[in-house]
Design a protein around this nucleic acid. Sequence first.
DNA 1: CGGACTTTTGAAGTAATTCAAGGGGAGTGG
DNA 2: CCACTCCCCTTGAATTACTTCAAAAGTCCG
Lengths: 233, 233
Amino acid sequence: MEQTSDILGRSELFEGLAAPARAAVSAAGFHRRLGEGEALLRQGDAADGVFLVLSGLLRASQTTAEGQQVAIRYLGPGDVAGYTALTGGSVHPGTVSAVEDSEVLGWANAAFRRLMAEHPSIAMNALALLGTRYHEMQVRLRELSTEPAAQRIGRTLLRLARQAGRRSARGVEIAFPLSRQDVAEMSGTTLHTASRTLADWEERGLVDSGRLRIVLRAPQALAELVGEDDETA
Amino acid sequence: MEQTSDILGRSELFEGLAAPARAAVSAAGFHRRLGEGEALLRQGDAADGVFLVLSGLLRASQTTAEGQQVAIRYLGPGDVAGYTALTGGSVHPGTVSAVEDSEVLGWANAAFRRLMAEHPSIAMNALALLGTRYHEMQVRLRELSTEPAAQRIGRTLLRLARQAGRRSARGVEIAFPLSRQDVAEMSGTTLHTASRTLADWEERGLVDSGRLRIVLRAPQALAELVGEDDETA
DNA sequence: CGGACTTTTGAAGTAATTCAAGGGGAGTGG
DNA sequence: CCACTCCCCTTGAATTACTTCAAAAGTCCG
């Protein structure tokens, strides 16, 4: 089990903070455990806190009036959930729930605001963090507007592999249970299209997938296919 | 002509700042004029400053490798461009250029960072501003993933009307030249679909449009059509 | 009046969704 | 240990919304 303080230090939000400051931050927060499927915060609810993921995996999503889901991102250790409270917003724009058993460190709005006031570098980090996310969203918006479904699915897989990839003999495995439906919700398409696309890639030896499991056998070939120069690291 | 200090005071970024602080902020910046079509900053360039729009209208967009454009947003007086520098990013993720003759107030990275350090409320405002934008992008991502083209076009029009709408006898007019192509790039579709959709709505008496000009004759009916409860204000 | 955009509209083509049905795996409970 | 059941995945076939292709008609400005 990793130390809370270590995760704090490595998180985008608290990096660069001196040890005593980290201790103060940690002391001001409260721990919360979430079982698989449990919601940390719900779309439409009052924004009442900021959370840092300590362990496990969460998923941020938006739901339409008709109940259709759109996945925004997955959150692992060191990631921040509930940025709304951080920016002074009043209502959570999306739902964040645990994909697997998880643990988070949370701060009430007022407490977090106090921390930012006492340690301005936290506020600067928060700005950087939001800037990065905003940028990501711009890119995804562009992809969704201009690219065909297969390409978007490829990018989704590469993105997830980069974030939660585990190198294995057969390639890079996405290290958490991921259904076709999940892939579709991240890519802006249907599970049918996702399934067909993966079947096609499986034939071509690019991926190796099964129930809730996807392994990228040839990440760089996939990257080329979708028009990225990028590496899976 | 409006006073710089007034715009500063009303802008999301500097609101709540006392008059002397506003003066300091203003003094630390430099003015820049842009002719119609001129770029304030370009996608891929080094992020070298933060800008506040004083007058005119700018457009933020992303361009794909193939040259296809996606419009991110339009910026009027009080809006901020070049948030990348503000968050510590190094490269502009998109291009911002003037739709009509415009004037901006700019700050070099270092100068702006100094201002935030001296006036923490600027940093807080910046956080709020980015949070709002991030939220907007989440919503648009959801819309793009789940809604048909017509609905997205409707939302685009309502959004633009809310931002730059001018009440007239015939309804709410979008107060700047806007082509079908522009509407398409904001909605994630083609100019053909945009044209056909507008023609349909024109027949139904919802809009009244012509060359580079769109008037919403029945904003609330349009809102209902696209599934918003919202008003055009 | 010429020329450059912008817009419209038809027709063809297609990517992707929707509809529909069936086939696995994994876990559960008898 | 087997059967049952619940998901998850797959795969055709039909449909459709949207794009692409193509050409012509407006509209504004010099």
